[in-house]
Simulated scan of single mutants.
Amino acid sequence: MSTYTNARLVTPTGVIGNGWLTTEDGRITGLGEGPREGGRDLEGAFLAPGFVDIHVHGGGGHSAMTSKDSIREAVAYHRTRGTTTMLISLVTAPLDHMERAAGWIADLTEEGLIAGGHFEGPFLSHARCGAQDPDALRLPDVAELRRLLDAGRRTIRQVTIAPELVGPSGDTGLDLIRECVSRNVVAAIGHTDATYEQAAAGFEAGARLVTHTFNGMRGLHHRDPAVVLAAAERPDVILEVINDGVHLHPSVVAMLDRIAARRLALITDAIDATGIGDGEYRLGAMSVVVKDGEARLATNGSLAGSTLTMDVAFKRAVQAVGVPIEIASFYASAIPAQVLGLTDRGLLAEGQRADLVVLDDALDLVEVL
């Protein structure tokens, strides 16, 4: 058994000062307030649940689209930044490449390294493709979706879809959403030109997530509130947020916290450049230039993922956006775990996995346990 004492425990209901927490066999066995004999003195540091990132393409110089070993290295990097559970995201590519990468994800999920995979494409809107390869985008085809999901051997947990699309066979984005739901796969709406009505139809069909809210979709307009308001009106829909100060202004994140309270999931959308620095990189087939930490397509300057890490997203939620630390923790850990149906992690509570991060007064990461 391990015991941690003199910690500020970040729980769902608030911070417990001078707290203690015990673990055994990888699980939290108890926690409380007050002095405790023995164990490790954390000297007043914050102790919070490990971060859960449901949208990450790479990191530490390694891309998920390159090889299984590259995924391993990206996971290892993000773990040093406090992400203890992650979903590996694949960008749009030819179907055979996506199938091959889905096989890598299946192997690593079965090994227990990751929580599964996310197809960010290929059934996305050309009008809102962002950094997705426009030449590899495809119109809805349920048979092709099944082919991709089968390649993942039941480890693909999430698929991003533009609900307004219609394929030549008559299959629609709504049909793809229903197919995902039938397979217990989270359907996300993103990279979409959907109107409010089309987005609402997508949520009615079973979509329960918005991929990087506001990015890769119509904006919130007073005559066409589009995806964002359609999502905010649904209490069962979670909204992803890239909280790096580039993709979203802090005041916009604060607005989302008001209109979709306790329904935000902090994500990184991190690419291979994360943790490496400025330079030239590739995101799938697309050439990316990173300057001053911003990743943009070399061709048109469109944002191309981020160089964000979850510890920074969490810190910014508190310091730049102004949400209470326990809510920031909820958005960085419990909510994304909830999206994946992982009820055994994301909270400081008895019986939960003992995936923990230690943070100093400035909310900088000190240690990953």
Rank of each mutant, 00 (worst) to 15 (best):
Q352V: 06
T83G: 10
G219A: 06
T22P: 06
L149G: 05
S125K: 06
T13Y: 05
F119V: 02
G59S: 14
T80A: 04
T29E: 14
V166M: 01
T80N: 02
A106E: 02
F314G: 04
M98I: 00
T85S: 15
S306V: 14
Q158V: 13
S125C: 07
L264F: 06
V56A: 15
M310Y: 11
L347K: 10
D141I: 08
A194H: 02
R154K: 15
D236C: 05
L165W: 01
E73A: 10
I71R: 02
A207T: 11
G34N: 06
D311Q: 13
P225Y: 12
D193E: 11
C129V: 14
L359G: 01
M86W: 04
P235D: 12
G50F: 04
E120F: 12
A143C: 04
L174A: 02
H55M: 15
A127N: 13
A317Q: 02
I177R: 02
R345D: 02
L9S: 05
E204M: 03
A102I: 01
A200P: 00
V241R: 02
M286V: 15
L95I: 13
I16A: 00
G34W: 13
T23F: 06
A320Y: 03
L229N: 05
G32C: 14
G322W: 11
D171N: 07
D292P: 13
R263Y: 14
D257P: 03
M217E: 00
N184F: 13
V186E: 07
G30L: 11
R263H: 07
G173F: 07
V368H: 08
E24F: 07
T29W: 13
L308T: 09
M98A: 00
G32Q: 06
P94D: 11
L308K: 11
L47I: 03
R154Y: 07
I327D: 13
H221D: 10
Q319I: 07
Q352C: 12
D361H: 08
L308R: 08
R208E: 12
V15G: 03
G19T: 04
P12Q: 14
T83S: 10
A207C: 04
L229Y: 00
L176Q: 03
P12W: 00
N215T: 09
I28T: 12
T23A: 15
D53C: 10
T211F: 10
T213P: 01
I105M: 08
I71M: 07
A260H: 09
P225I: 12
A265Q: 00
H221L: 12
V252A: 10
A45I: 01
D292Q: 12
D224L: 03
V358E: 10
D355K: 06
